[in-house]
Write a protein that binds this DNA or RNA. Structure first.
Lengths: 338, 338
DNA sequence: TTGAAAGCGCTAACAG
DNA sequence: CTGTTAGCGCTTTCAA
């Protein structure tokens, strides 16, 4: 068993004063004589005294913990967002407890319960791709427990959220494909009930319209966000009588899965098919050809979500702010036909 | 402000009984009459009572928290290990607090302090690449606070640890290169004070010996684990008067950075230079050509580390067990010359 | 200038 | 069978 940390009591008995005196001395309370204060602070240092957060938490009814629920921790996208959240949390003296829903609504519900039972002071969450029902968030809202969504949000709930401008991104990509000679531009989308799927689809349609291309329903396929489904969706596109000359995938899993499948079927990127996706720089560069992609401001998204969280926490108001972060299109070889 | 959770006191006053009666009823203590028990439990359910972990922690002197320190959270390698740790932790009713050292010894020291001040019950850590001095772990060891290392360990401290069999892995790779016609096999290693660097180097040398190849010091280069340094190291190898016909990198960052650099310099993989690395499946497949690699059992490593941790925690003994996990060489196109 | 006491939520030993 | 009490570590009135 580990030895106990030093407590105020330890210091008090060692110096023959009362606990409250020690407590006051440590926060430089003017009532305590300077010399006693000095003596107490010195001993506290020697004994490496640090206040017991459990005792403080019990007293103040706060745990200094934020619950974070992500669909998956094993991706650069989420781990980078988590880094951003953690940075801000640390600055505020908070730490974060991460829970992964594994894209399952059931697990998301359990995570909410567990975290609440652990007395986190609030939640920062990215919905699982399955989540189409939101009653597990009602109790948070009713009890005014701080809640912030990021990336995937529920449009019906007026919950503060941080988003990337997916609509603009897909519109830009569509236009970019057009300007590089593509006319049959396909889009592999995610589950329709996710806001990010919907927004990106809107941008895609707007982009087509802007370029005076008629929308061909065959070129819009849906898939859940697994590698397997993304490959199937790609196959479906490639097998069309009149296959696409450009494809973009809604997230990095889809983009890379599409890339694997396109190569496997013997098509050349970008000459036969241009490709673009949403992903981070490192992986975009490492693949062949380097992937044109939308750079998601992940770290910033995490920071913004955490800052929003603390705004909620201190103001206690029901701000239903929505922050939309700009995105960037980084053009690489996968979309420039020779 | 969020509403308070229901407490034993709330239930007690509502039912007009004492707090201890409620407490006992909720754990089915035989002393309490069945009907009262039933009544109390029912109300507890309605009010969604869950014990306050802060109060429990204060009482039992335990926080049910494990501190986890990783060099970097933004890589598949570590996030996958974290998933493994988290799974086991959850099964034991613990949650984990993650802190990233960003490969800095200074930040590692701070992390240890912060986590200890947060009263985590122990630490599971992977050393930063800078860490060459270990006094910040002494207090843990002296106070018998559970500590487990994984992947990167301090050989001098008798701390329980989970490792992958890097020596065998590099020996296998070396032999594999040889069997595929390579004779000038280069190895890009990490910082020399890291155990993983040393072990993998030993395997490399053993492999050479086994294949009756004389060791050429020019073919062994060191770098820290950043992309930039790895690229420089690769350049250095490629500029040799007699450049290598095979390269392997000590981890995935190095392997991919080497791949980028080799291509950039116009060498063909695998025909000019065979390449292999340590990384996960998904990324190995997505690059071109698919990368021969050693599959690190990351999730298992996390699980094993957590299990070891709980063994320490309950037994309280000073087990200095060392678990070595097997690795697998997965041959793909990057190492098969045509 | 300092100490005593109450209370945050909970358990367990001790009384009734 | 149930209630009282003390105590985990800390802050904060209220008293001295």
């Amino acid at each position: 068993m580990s030895k106990r940390h030093t407590s105020l009591k330890d210091l008090a008995t060692e110096l023959g004063v009362s606990i409250s005196t020690v407590s006051r001395a440590l926060k430089n309370h003017p009532d305590i004589s300077p010399e006693l204060t000095r003596k107490i602070q010195q001993l506290a240092n020697e004994r490496h005294y640090t206040p017991n957060p459990l005792a403080m938490g019990l007293l103040r009814q706060q745990t200094k913990m934020i619950g974070v629920i992500v669909p998956d921790i094993n991706t650069h996208f989420y781990s980078s967002i988590i880094s951003g959240i953690e940075k801000v949390a640390k600055e505020h003296g908070y730490f974060i407890v991460i829970s992964s829903s594994n894209e399952s609504m059931q697990k998301e519900i359990e995570s909410v319960d567990n975290l609440l039972n652990s007395r986190v002071e609030g939640l920062i969450v990215c919905l699982s791709q399955e989540t189409d029902e939101f009653s597990h968030f009602h109790k948070l809202i009713e009890n005014e427990i701080p809640l912030v969504f990021f990336d995937r949000v529920c449009e019906d709930l007026s919950v503060p959220a941080v988003l990337a401008n997916g609509e603009e991104a897909t519109q830009m990509i569509t236009r970019h494909f057009y300007e590089n000679g593509c006319r049959r531009i396909a889009y592999i989308s995610g589950p329709g009930h996710l806001n990010i799927s919907r927004n990106r689809k809107i941008g895609y349609l707007k982009g087509l319209e802007e370029c005076h291309i008629d929308f061909d329903p065959q070129l819009l396929v849906n898939c859940n966000l697994s590698i397997e489904e993304a490959r199937l969706a790609t196959q479906q596109l490639l097998q069309l009588p009149n296959p696409p000359d450009a494809i973009f995938g809604m997230n990095d899993t889809i983009a890379f899965a599409a890339m694997i499948e396109i190569k496997k079927q013997g098509f050349k990127i970008p000459d036969d098919i241009s490709l673009a996706g949403f992903t981070d720089e490192f992986h975009s560069i490492v693949v062949d050809p380097p992937l044109t992609s939308v750079s998601h401001p992940t770290f910033e998204m995490g920071k913004a979500a955490a800052e929003l969280f603390f705004e909620l926490l201190v103001k206690g108001e029901n701000i239903s702010k929505r922050i939309v972060l700009p995105i960037d299109l980084v053009v690489r070889q996968s979309s420039i036909k020779n």
